[in-house]
Amino acid sequence: MYIEELLTEKKRVIVRKWFDLTIETYPEETRNFLKTPAEQSANPVAETIHSALQGLFNGIINKETTGTGVASYLDNVVRIRAIQDFTPTQAVGFIFGLKDVIREELMNDVRRHGMYEELMAVESGIDRMAAAAFDIYMRCREKIYDLRANEVRNWTYRILKQSNMLREHEGEGI
């Protein structure tokens, strides 16, 4: 028996619990809305989070906890949480919820089969994801500042260009 088999068996319930835990990070009045299944376009935050958590969990099962696939799932969620009412820790902390859920769901089996090392490997995978999530978070926050600067540039570009305020290399003047 491998831990991956256990994880696969319990995939539905683990992802659901992890999702619920993530939704718990939102204000009470909002949780119901986020937990009610809807079309992607009607409830994009919940749907994006849900499908990303599924993707990330598959990554754990398949031992793919780094790489572009995982990064893009992380990006989908962290990009949202980076502009919501969260501190940096809260924004990426949802990832650790998976550890709690897995322990809760698998602890008996882990004990019975003595799979502590395997569990630790899984948890290291989760830690790797969390570290990557932090990098993404930082990039998103930097991006917010860039957006502001770029917007001003787009707006005034023509005026500056016309009044010869830009140097030879377009854009250098601003």
């Binding site: 990070t25 940096p88 902390g93 650790f96 969390a130």
Partner: peptide, 20 residues
């Protein structure tokens, strides 16, 4: 921008918002 937490702080975070 808020300061990044240390790894040991990270594992202990409470991801539920405080009840007002």
């Amino acid at each position: 921008m808020a300061k990044l937490p240390k790894p040991e702080e990270l594992s202990k975070i409470d991801y539920k918002p405080p009840k007002t």
